[in-house]
């Protein structure tokens, strides 16, 4: 399954809850959730730990918009909107953690 997260993990528990509950799969960080994938943020350790169970993607236009181009944690895969669409087709279902 594709899990879509759109909140900063420092302001909201949606990413934390997703990592707690979800079975292994894909996670896409969009909008304010991209901060989870930036180097040195307080959630970095948790995200790195999750990389064994989940493949983590980040929506690059949202990274660029927020001034973090080139400062994304290694191992997180950037996608554009076309890649976002692709992820929803390769996974059977998707869940937005609103």
């Amino acid at each position: 399954m594709l899990h879509i997260i759109n909140k900063s993990p420092l302001a909201n528990c949606s990413l934390d809850s997703c990592l707690r509950v979800a079975q292994p799969g894909d996670i896409l960080l969009i909008e304010d959730a991209i901060y989870a994938a930036t180097i040195g943020n307080a959630f970095e350790g948790k995200l790195r730990e999750a990389m064994g169970r989940f493949k983590i993607y980040v929506l690059q236009p949202d990274v660029d918009a927020r001034g973090f181009t080139g400062r994304v944690i290694e191992g997180v895969s950037p996608v554009d909107y076309s890649g976002f669409v692709e992820l929803t087709t390769t996974n059977k279902t998707c869940q937005s953690w609103l």
Binding site: M1, R20, V21, A22, Q23, G25, T93, C94, Q95, S96, W97, L98
Partner: peptide, 18 residues
Amino acid sequence: GRAEMGELMDQQDVILSF
């Protein structure tokens, strides 16, 4: 429990969240 909940989610066709 958390794992059972995750499994249940994986079995769905459509997931709506508001």
